[in-house]
Computed example of a mutant assay.
Amino acid sequence: MQPGNHALQLLLWQEPIYPEAFTKSPFTLQIHHNIAQLPVFNNAVVTIGTFDGVHSGHKHILNQLKAEAKSISGETVIITFHPHPRKIVSYTHKVRLLNTLEEKIALLSNEGIDHLVIIPFDEAFAAQSAEAYIRDFLVKRIHPHTIIIGYDHRFGKDRAGDYLMLEQYAEALGFEVKEISEKVLNEVAVSSTRIRKALLDGDIETANALLGYDYFFEGKVIEGNQLGRTIGYPTANLAVQNHEKLIPGNGVYAVEIKIGETCFKGMMNIGFRPTVDGSRLAIEVNIFDFNRDIYHTTIQVFVKHFLRAEQKFNGLDALKAQLARDKEMAMQKLIR
C-alpha cells in the first residue's frame, strides 16, 4: 500500500444517517498538550496507554478508572502518547493505527473521561530513567491520587520500570497503585490484534463487534480520471492523508459516508481496479442520485459490511453489470 495513492469513489443516497461513534458527546473531555502547564487535578485517578481503537476491551479499563474516581470524588486522567512510542523506541515507520489522534480524542470524548494528557513522545522522553519518569513526570506533573496500571506495563529507559517499581515508590511519594487484571489486559491485547487482522481480511463484522462501533477513516476528495461516468457510475477520489491509518483489505464494502454533518449510505471498492488499469491502489464507489460538488471536501467513511473480493471482469459491460449487483446488495445490507 503506497502512501498518497488511496482513491475513493462515493455512492451516496439521500437518506441521512448519524453513526453513533460521532454523535455529539454529553461529556466534556479536557485535552492537555503542554505537560508544563497542566492544571491541578482533583484526586486524579490515572491510567496510561495508547488506547488505539478505544475498543470494547478498553472499556473495562475506562469503567475501572471511572468507578475508582467516583469512589473518592476524584477526576479521571488518561495519559497517552503521540506519536506512537513504537515509532521512536523501535525506529519503525510501519505503524498501522486503528485511530488517528483526532479520532481517539473524539471516541474518548464519548466515554465520560475528565482529562486526556497527550505526551509529545520523543527520544528525550523515552531516554529518562524509570525513577525520573515516576518522580519528575507522574508525581511532579500529574500529582496522582491513584494510578491504575497493568502488571505488564513498562516505562522509562530500556523499559526498566514496571508495576512493582510503582508500588515501591507509592507510599513515599504519596500515591496508590491498583492493578488492571490480567484477564482484562489479555482481552485488550487480543482485541487489538484481532481487529487489525479482521480489517485486513475483510471481516468487518468481527472488527466492528470488537470495536463497539463501525470502523472509519477519512480523506479529502480529489479529481480522478472520471472513467466511471462513461459507464453510468460517476466517481470521486479520496486522498487518505494520514498514512499510518489502517485501511481495510481489498474488496467491495457497504459503507456510510459523512459529509459535513450529514451521513449517506454507499458502497466502496478497495483495490487495484484490474478491469481498468490495475496500476495503483484505489478506494472507489459509484455515485448516484447525488450531484453536489464535493471536490476538496474532507469526508469520513464508515465501513459496515464486506460484500465480495476484488476481481477482474471481461470488459466494462461486465463490470457495469456487477456494479449494479453490488449496489443492490449494499442497499439490502444497509437497511437491515
Rank of each mutant, 00 (worst) to 15 (best):
G4E: 11
A7S: 13
A7K: 09
A7V: 05
L11S: 15
E15W: 01
P16R: 04
Y18I: 07
E20M: 01
S25F: 10
S25C: 07
S25G: 08
P26I: 10
T28E: 13
H33C: 12
A36K: 15
L38N: 01
V46A: 02
T47P: 04
T50F: 02
V54Q: 02
V54S: 00
S56T: 13
H60D: 10
I61N: 02
A67Y: 04
E68C: 14
E68K: 15
K70R: 14
S71H: 05
T76Y: 00
T76R: 00
F81Y: 13
F81P: 00
H82I: 00
H84M: 06
P85F: 07
R86S: 12
I88R: 05
L97F: 00
T100Y: 02
I105A: 01
N110L: 15
N110R: 15
E111C: 11
G112R: 10
I113D: 06
D114R: 07
V117P: 13
I118C: 06
F121L: 14
E123F: 14
S129K: 09
A132P: 00
Y133L: 05
Y133E: 05
I134F: 04
L138W: 03
I149L: 12
Y151R: 13
R154D: 01
F155N: 04
D158L: 08
L164A: 15
Q168K: 15
A170W: 05
A170T: 07
L173N: 06
E176I: 08
E176D: 10
E182P: 09
V188F: 07
V190N: 13
S192Q: 12
R194G: 00
K197V: 06
A198I: 05
L199G: 03
L199C: 04
D201T: 05
D201H: 08
G202H: 09
D203E: 14
I204V: 15
T206N: 13
N208S: 09
L210G: 03
L211D: 02
K220D: 01
I222T: 13
I222F: 02
E223P: 01
G224C: 01
A236M: 06
L238E: 10
L238S: 01
A239Y: 14
V240C: 04
Q241G: 14
N242Y: 11
H243T: 13
I247T: 03
P248I: 09
G249C: 05
G249T: 11
V252H: 00
Y253C: 02
E256H: 13
I257A: 01
C263A: 13
C263K: 03
F264L: 12
N269F: 11
F272A: 03
T275S: 11
A282H: 05
V285Q: 06
F288V: 08
N291K: 15
I294W: 08
Q300E: 09
V301L: 12
V303Q: 11
A318T: 14
L319C: 05
E328L: 14
Q332I: 12
